[in-house]
Amino acid sequence: MHADDDRLGAHLVHPDSPVQGLLRQASRLEGIQKMLRDWAREPLASSLRIANEREGVVVVYVDSAAAHTQLRYRQQEMLQLLRNGLGNPSLSLEIKMRPASQG
């Protein structure tokens, strides 16, 4: 085994490593996406995806203008769901249109 392999392994398992931080963030975003998709129901649910959560802002991408309009009308309801679900009463929300990639 090469010495670099040991260092890589340490980064993968050490709780304070950047890799573990990325895995925690990915898991959190996945949980937020599930929460929103359960709330939104189809066909709207499959049109949205969580892009990011940073500095108290959840960024949601929608893949069509129709989905964007629906979420705008339900934005306060969605924001309350996120605030309650994430335990952050000052959370804010950005909804952006970004079509899903083809392929």
Results as ranks from 00 to 15, higher is better:
L23W: 13
D6W: 03
M1C: 10
S64K: 09
D6A: 04
D63Y: 08
R7H: 08
L23F: 13
S90I: 08
P18Q: 08
M97Y: 05
M35C: 05
D6C: 00
Q20I: 15
R24G: 13
P15K: 05
H68D: 09
R83H: 14
Q75D: 12
Q76P: 01
P18V: 07
Q76L: 10
Q102D: 12
P15I: 06
D4N: 05
Y61E: 10
H14Q: 08
T69D: 07
D5K: 06
L93W: 04
L93R: 02
S46G: 03
E42F: 01
R98S: 14
K96P: 02
L86R: 10
P18Y: 06
N88L: 13
D38V: 06
M1P: 05
R74F: 04
G9Y: 04
A67S: 03
S92T: 07
S92F: 00
L86S: 09
V59G: 01
A3W: 08
A65V: 08
S17A: 15
V57P: 02
S92I: 00
P99I: 04
M35P: 05
W39H: 12
P89Y: 11
S17W: 14
L71S: 04
R54E: 15
H14G: 04
E94D: 14
W39P: 01
R98Y: 12
W39E: 09
Q80N: 14
Q102V: 13
L22W: 15
S64C: 11
D4A: 09
R37P: 02
R74G: 05
A65D: 10
G56Q: 11
R54D: 13
A26H: 10
I50L: 08
G103P: 14
L71D: 01
R7L: 11
G85M: 05
Y61T: 02
R74P: 01
D16M: 07
D5L: 12
E53T: 02
S47W: 00
L86C: 11
L8I: 12
V62Y: 00
R83N: 14
V59E: 04
R28N: 02
G9D: 07
A3P: 07
V13N: 06
I50T: 07
L29Y: 09
Q20L: 14
P99A: 13
L71P: 02
A3Y: 07
R28H: 04
V60N: 00
I50K: 02
R41S: 04
I95L: 01
R41M: 03
L8V: 11
R7N: 06
V19P: 11
K34L: 13
V60I: 13
L81V: 12
N84L: 14
E94C: 09
R37K: 13
M35A: 10
E53K: 01
T69N: 08
R28G: 00
P89W: 12
V59Q: 04
R7F: 09
G103I: 15
D16W: 06
A67F: 00
R83I: 14
L29D: 06
A100N: 12
P18W: 07
L71Q: 01
G31I: 01
